[in-house]
Simulated assay, not measured.
Amino acid sequence: MDELDEQILGILHDDARISFSALGRRIGLSTNAAAARVRKLEQTGVILGYTTRVADELPGRGGLEVFIDIRLDADTSHEDFAARLAAVRAVEDAVHLTGEYDWLVHVRVEDAADLDALLHRLKQEAGVAHSRTRLVLRS
């Protein structure tokens, strides 16, 4: 990796959707040369992928930010729980933990009624035995 690759990474970090021709113009390479460098960075594992950032204020993204500590039923596998959790749109992140609780789940919901419905759904469909919720007051 050289200085040109570093420049490419910086540009892609700011705008991953930039065209190869625009990227090439910014770093002084042809379209084909810029594309080849990006492909090489992808193939060698320097670039692992691309992502989309979504605004928090979209409809359905919620007015309440909540952390939920979750203890699973004894007969619920962590893999099954994780698969069911992946289908829940309100989930921002989830981590499997050691200690008193099995999982810490970060969610955004519209209001208390949506939180109540989500908790009920997790207990009925995802094998949650016990949960403890914490509302974010400030981030």
Results as ranks from 00 to 15, higher is better:
Ala117Ile: 03
Ser21Asn: 02
Ser131Gln: 05
Gly63Pro: 08
Leu137Ile: 15
Arg84Pro: 00
Val105Pro: 06
Leu12Tyr: 05
His96Val: 10
Val38Gly: 00
Arg138Thr: 15
Arg84Glu: 15
Tyr50Asn: 11
Ser30Thr: 07
Thr52Cys: 02
His120Val: 13
Lys40Asn: 09
Thr133Pro: 06
Arg37Met: 08
Val105Lys: 02
Asp80Ile: 07
Leu12Arg: 02
Ser77Glu: 02
Ile68Leu: 01
Gly10Glu: 12
Arg108His: 08
Val91Tyr: 00
Asp15His: 05
Leu9Met: 08
Asp14Cys: 05
Tyr101Cys: 11
Arg108Trp: 04
Phe81Arg: 04
Ala87His: 05
Gly63Ile: 05
Glu79Cys: 09
Leu97Pro: 09
Asp80His: 11
Arg121Glu: 10
Val91Trp: 00
Asp56Glu: 10
Pro59Tyr: 11
Phe67His: 13
Ser21Phe: 03
Tyr50Gly: 09
Thr98Tyr: 12
Arg84Met: 05
Asn32Pro: 02
Ala94Pro: 15
Trp103Ser: 04
Val46Arg: 08
Val66Trp: 06
Val136Asp: 04
Val46Thr: 14
Glu57Gly: 13
Leu137Glu: 03
His106Arg: 15
Ala22Phe: 06
Thr31Trp: 01
His96Phe: 13
Leu64Ala: 03
Leu122Met: 14
Arg37Gly: 08
Ala74Phe: 13
Val136Met: 06
Ala94Trp: 03
Leu9Ala: 08
Ala86Arg: 01
Gly10Cys: 07
Ala55His: 13
Arg89Ala: 15
His96Lys: 03
Asp56Ser: 09
Ala94Tyr: 00
Ala82Pro: 03
Ala86His: 02
Lys123Gln: 15
Val128Lys: 01
Ser139Thr: 13
Leu48Pro: 03
Arg132Asn: 12
Val54Pro: 01
Arg39Leu: 05
Thr76Glu: 01
Asp80Asn: 13
Ser19His: 06
Thr133Gly: 10
Leu12Val: 12
Ile70Thr: 07
Phe81Ser: 00
Leu9Lys: 07
Tyr50His: 14
Gly62Cys: 02
Asp15Leu: 04
Glu110Ile: 08
Glu125Phe: 07
Val109Glu: 02
Ala90Glu: 15
Ala117Arg: 14
Arg134Ala: 09
Tyr101Met: 11
